[in-house]
Design a protein around this nucleic acid. Sequence first.
DNA 1: GAGTGGTCTAGACCACTTA
DNA 2: AAGTGGTCTAGACCACTCG
Lengths: 232, 232
Amino acid sequence: MTSQRASFRTIRDELSRRIAERIWLPGTLIPGEEALAEEFGAARATVNRALQELARAGILERKRRAGTRVALHPVREARFVIPRIRQEIEGRGSEYQYRLLSAEETDAPEVICARLSLLSKSGMLHVRCLHLADRVPYQYEDRWINLNTVPDARRADFKSMGPNEWLVGHAPFSNAEFTFMAGAASADEASLLQVREGDPVFIGERITWMKGQPITLAHLVHPSSHRMVTHL
Amino acid sequence: MTSQRASFRTIRDELSRRIAERIWLPGTLIPGEEALAEEFGAARATVNRALQELARAGILERKRRAGTRVALHPVREARFVIPRIRQEIEGRGSEYQYRLLSAEETDAPEVICARLSLLSKSGMLHVRCLHLADRVPYQYEDRWINLNTVPDARRADFKSMGPNEWLVGHAPFSNAEFTFMAGAASADEASLLQVREGDPVFIGERITWMKGQPITLAHLVHPSSHRMVTHL
DNA sequence: GAGTGGTCTAGACCACTTA
DNA sequence: AAGTGGTCTAGACCACTCG
């Protein structure tokens, strides 16, 4: 008997509580939708929504015919916002500045072609630029843009606007891969970021595709003071 | 007129296409649920589910009375799985090994207390250990556990099981903060990870709470060959 | 084959917000 | 005040999978 009015939230939270307080242990088969609907005095669709949310959060595992179980190894996931560099800097109350270092159409080196699964190394635009926060180097960006996928990028002016800003407005992506790692600053990176060569740097690599066609590969280098933070 | 049978997936994908192909530009007010339901020959609840999924993905913004708009600045988010070190290593087909370095109840240094917003520095368990993949150092873990929140940890045996594995089974968390950064290996870290002192390392920091009470602070150090990858 | 979750419908009422 | 999304219901059929 529940005094609460039926709502997918109250049902979701109550089930969540039973799992957190180990009333239902991991692996337990919990009652079916129909039974829960009766217990909570709600429609099955309402119970379904509560269960689906918990399943999406990874704390329940649902299978047709087999029923719903408390996940044995809850796959916890966290989210992080895909940073838009200007917003990221301005959002912290800092002044954003942008400096284009170079932009030229040139053949891509083997490494880049391989990373993007490209057969031809031609038709690539290589852009290098620097993003500053309060006049201090914040991120060095080394990017390759596939002109075969985004021919308009030839006419883009990257002097005043970073390639990322241009791309979000002109070439939406359907898939992306993000890689984060630590590395040692090369001589170039060191002088641009005002650190010493060999100093640790935080590197983000981003590859985006539109319907299987590679759009761009970005290599984003931060000084080691950089923090990537996310909450759950 | 749509030849597809009504389904929240087909509706969701069709709307997504209209946005991706810029038929509906950012900021556009799109038709209401009722209108879309009629267009697709579906019930409003079905349209609602499609719209809610797109809103959760950040490409639509919905407000009562105001209607649904294509997001101006789509806040793209990516997810990453919160790694369980053993699964992470075994999932790559490598052999997992664990080595406890030290575990002692001791006062926490100022830095740690501050990081956890702790008033008292006592009642802390300091655990250091090493995780190996195929006998190669993979992660060095330096962890503080708050015994005031998790008194059972005093009786835990961390000789055979890592503190993370123990904690997931005994102290679920309600909130967590993840930080990723690059750093230079200290002398200790360098010898344990078999790199040179000062070499870049990839550092993950994890703080977890249960209902506002800090549970643990983990400092996780990887050699610079480490990659953290996620897809969208 | 049968039971469970997945999805859809038609209708209803409510909550919020903006015109 | 009214229109839009948010949620719920009761009922239905389907798809998948386990025994």
